[in-house]
Amino acid sequence: MDLATVIGIVLSFGLVVAAILTGSSLMVFISVPSALIVLGGTIGAALVNYPLSYVIGVIGVIKNTFFSNLDTPASVIDKFKDYANRARREGILSLEPLLKEIDDDYMRKGLQLTVDGLEPQTIQEIMETEISYLQERHETGADVVAVLGTLAPAMGMIGTVIGLVQMLQTMSDPSTIGPAMAVALLTTLYGAILANLVFNPMSGKLKTRSKEEVLIREMILEGILAISKGENPRIIEEKLNSFLPPKDRVTDQP
């Protein structure tokens, strides 16, 4: 669970609700027509912009802002030090029994290719292709969420225009002015909240998640190539540490 995402959403919505409650009832800011215009319009426009599978897949994409099962860079370095020492002492085939214990599909695939005896250049080509398409998938997911963030305020403005038209058409009846004006203003509010408190921040978090996963995979690729070339475990550690800022690097305790 990503605490930053949870804390951010709870804090932002909590402060907005608290500000509302200091001046009026929360029920004043609840409007079913406004919600239908913003939510329905945003989803409908997204379906025009993207295939159905992309829009449905947004649910899974958004889940990635709350949950992350990535290995830490330090754990990746420790694993490859162990693999390199084992391969150096017992041979590359000694890694084969360990494959079923590896949860990371990318790492398991790379080590399997190494155990199978493929040339380092071939392994690099295969694994770099995986990274390339991973980035493309992540970019698409973040783009879909960003588009939702762009569409929501636009739907809010459309709702505002609808509400104003309804208000102007019924100016002779003062009792209808209030509800029409509420729809006009609340749709703008809903669109702004969805865009600025939900969709746009989540799109940014997804891009950050993508960079983190790409970094881990690049470290894994470097470690696999080093093992396939039979490099010294200490050299492998130094190579993997070069991916990290100095304060995060793994060093052997004296």
Rank of each mutant, 00 (worst) to 15 (best):
V161F: 00
A87R: 05
K63N: 10
V165H: 03
S24D: 03
L36R: 04
G110W: 11
T5G: 03
K81D: 15
A184F: 00
V48S: 05
Y54D: 07
P51R: 11
S25P: 01
T42C: 02
A4F: 12
S68N: 02
G14W: 07
K79A: 11
G178M: 03
L240D: 07
V183H: 03
D105P: 06
N200V: 02
L134F: 13
K79P: 09
I131H: 14
Q253E: 14
L70R: 14
N85Q: 08
G230N: 02
F243K: 06
E139M: 15
K211Y: 10
L225F: 06
G141N: 05
T114N: 08
G57P: 06
V115H: 09
Q169M: 04
L52F: 02
M107Q: 11
G14M: 10
P33A: 05
T170N: 14
M202C: 03
V38W: 00
G40L: 04
Q135H: 14
N196G: 04
E238C: 12
K79H: 11
D143M: 13
D78W: 10
G141F: 00
S242Y: 15
K63Y: 09
D104P: 02
S25W: 04
S34C: 06
T22C: 12
L95Q: 03
Y50A: 00
T208H: 08
E96D: 10
L118Q: 14
M107S: 07
D103S: 08
Q135L: 14
K205M: 03
T114H: 07
I126K: 15
E222Y: 04
M155R: 00
I158A: 00
H138E: 13
F67M: 05
K247M: 13
T170F: 10
A4P: 08
L225E: 11
L26S: 01
R108D: 06
T170K: 09
P245L: 06
S175I: 11
R249W: 14
E125I: 15
D71E: 07
E101K: 13
L98F: 04
A154N: 03
T5R: 02
L194A: 08
I37K: 01
D71G: 08
Y190Q: 00
K239L: 10
I102Q: 05
V198K: 07
I59Q: 08
K109Q: 14
L148V: 10
V6E: 01
I102R: 05
E218T: 09
M27A: 12
K63G: 08
V183Q: 04
E231A: 02
A18D: 03
L111A: 04
Q124I: 12
G44S: 08
D248Y: 06
S210I: 10
T187K: 02
V183S: 03
L3V: 06
M127C: 15
K239R: 11
E125V: 15
D105S: 13
L70I: 12
L151F: 07
I7Q: 10
S132L: 15
F243Y: 12
A45W: 01
E96V: 10
I102S: 08
I59S: 09
L111T: 09
A74F: 07
A46H: 00
V61H: 01
G191S: 01
L15V: 11
